[in-house]
């Protein structure tokens, strides 16, 4: 069962059982963005509040599997309070991770940039790469957030 535990790491199960930043924000001023996974029916709603180019607050609602829910929780913790430019970098790094570029994370080399350090616990989602059909579960919240940032530009 090693590969199953690779996917469902303790950090992931923890965020699934106790999701961070769960809830809604008054919209407006917050922007409300919906994301769907039409294949499995997962739905996510991201509320983001950007002020002076900083993502000052983020909340999430919706339903989905442990991977999509923990990924959205981990994402919210990683990006909250960060400048939008840095949020975009974190999103880009996470999507790289999901494309199988795990060499930058979880390797013997310590992350060298502030962006990678900011990802921290996100490395727990690395195991998803070995389960290709679940990658879209992990990226749902991220794509939704990216869409929200694009719309607020």
């Amino acid at each position: 069962m090693s590969s199953l535990e690779d996917l469902y790491r303790e950090v992931i199960l923890d965020h699934y059982r106790s999701p961070r930043n769960r809830g809604e924000l008054p919209s407006p001023p917050a922007r409300r963005v919906e994301g769907f996974n039409p294949l499995c029916g997962d739905e996510i709603v991201v509320y983001l509040e950007v002020r002076d180019d900083v993502l000052v607050d983020i909340k999430l609602t919706g339903h989905g599997c442990s991977i999509s829910q923990s990924s959205s929780s981990l994402m919210s913790a990683a990006v909250k309070g960060k400048p939008v430019s840095q949020v975009r970098e974190i999103i880009a790094n996470f999507k790289q991770l999901m494309m199988g570029h795990e060499a930058t994370l979880g390797s013997d080399e310590a992350p060298t940039t502030a962006d990678l350090r900011a990802m921290g616990e996100l490395a727990a989602l690395q195991g998803v790469v070995k389960f290709p059909v679940r990658i879209k579960c992990a990226t749902l919240a991220w794509n939704t957030l990216a869409q929200g940032l694009d719309e607020s530009d």
Binding site: Y8, C40, H63, G64, C65, S66, I67, C137
Partner: peptide, 8 residues
């Protein structure tokens, strides 16, 4: 347990 996780 979400159905996707059940199936996994």
């Amino acid at each position: 347990v979400h159905p996707h996780d059940v199936a996994q």
